[in-house]
Amino acid sequence: MMERLICHLQSINGDLVTDILSRVDGSALASVASTCSELRGIARDQGLWKRLCHSRWPSTALEEAEHLISGSIHGCFDKFYSDACQLVLYDEVASANSLKLPECAELNPGTSPSDLLSLIDVYSKNRCVFSRILDGIPEAVDIFQAWTC
C-alpha cells in the first residue's frame, strides 16, 4: 500500500533528483527513466550510468574502454549498461530464462574475432582483483599470460 502524492517532483530541483538517482542501481534508474519525459532527461545523465558501469564492470573504467564507450555510435554508458544487461553473459541464467538476444547485439556477418575487444574483470572473494582489455574474443586469449605482462 502507498499513498498517492501530488506533484512533489516540482519542488525538488534537478540537482537533488540527480543526487537521489546517483544512489540507486541500474534497474531503478531505468524505471525512473520510464516514468515521464522530465525524469527521462535527468536519468539520461551519462555520469550516473558511467558510475554504474564502473562499479559493475571495473574494466569499463580503463581509459581505452571509456573512450570506446563514450565514442560509440550506438550511444553512451546508458546504452552500454542496458545492452550488457541484455546480453547472454551468464549461460545458466540465460538458458533458464530463455533470454533472446536483443537486435542491437547482432553483428555484421563480416565481423571477425579480431574486430572485437574483450573487457575482462576477474573476481576473487567478491572483490575485483584484475581488470584488463584484450583484443579479440576470450577463448582466443590466454588471460594469465596477459596478467603477467
Binding site: 506533484c7 543526487d19 537521489i20 538517482l21 525512473v32 516514468t35 519525459s37
Partner: peptide
Amino acid sequence: LNQAVADRIQNRSVEYVRSFFGIDNDF
C-alpha cells in the same frame, strides 16, 4: 533523506515511482 528516497524506489515498478513522486505519465 536522499538516501531514504533512493532506498524506497529501489526494486520498484515504474507505476510505483510515478506515484511516489506524484508524476503524470506524459509519454
